[in-house]
């Protein structure tokens, strides 16, 4: 049970809820579904918080639980996917004042292309990429968390990086 030295549930929620929501949005296609999954993750965190066995690192625990929750959600949401698959995802980014208009236009288009390519990756490739490059986990940690081999992690990573670079190159050639 928590005491005065340990973080409160509200504190943990405030510290991590943005990261969890962001992870869900990256790993799932549907925004509403991402929000639902984020709430599920915090419900699990609340249950875990009430037990005597706390994880050493809440951040890593939340990342792992979030990735698994999104994975489960993707598996069970084939019907929703079929319904939404015909709808093409379109991106529209708002300009930032920190760059020149030319840089802004080029950068905006590149970002849109990268995000589109990222959303077109397979679920596993997105999971591996997020954990390895955005969360900064080692290949070994990713493999352990996703219950796959390190070789498989590297294969998924290479395909993901290759697809994303291709999207970047196409955009560079087109602009």
């Amino acid at each position: 049970m928590p005491d005065k030295e340990t973080p409160s549930f509200e504190g943990l929620y405030k510290a991590h809820h943005l990261k969890v929501q962001r992870l869900c949005r990256m790993l799932l296609r549907d925004t509403a579904e991402a929000e639902e999954t984020g709430q599920e993750v915090f419900l699990k965190m609340f249950k875990q918080y009430q037990t005597a066995s706390w994880p050493n690192d809440w951040s890593a625990w939340l990342t792992r639980v979030t990735v698994n929750a999104c994975h489960d959600r993707r598996k069970s949401a084939w019907w929703k996917w079929w319904r939404s698959s015909n709808g093409e995802v379109q991106f529209a980014e708002y300009p930032s004042s920190a760059r020149t208009p030319e840089q802004e236009a080029l950068g905006r288009e590149q970002r849109v292309h990268i995000w589109r390519a990222f959303r077109e990756l397979s679920g596993r490739q997105r999971e591996v990429f997020v954990l390895r490059y955005l969360e900064g986990w080692s290949t070994e940690e990713v493999a352990k968390s996703l219950a796959i081999s390190e070789g498989s992690v590297k294969n998924h990573l290479f395909r993901a990086v290759h697809s994303l670079r291709e999207a970047l190159k196409k955009n560079g050639e087109g602009s």
């Binding site: 939404s84 995802v89 991106f91 529209a92 708002y94 995000w115 990222f118």
Partner: peptide
Amino acid sequence: TLQQEPPALRI
């Protein structure tokens, strides 16, 4: 790019 907020999505 992916660490930043994603651009607004529209279906």
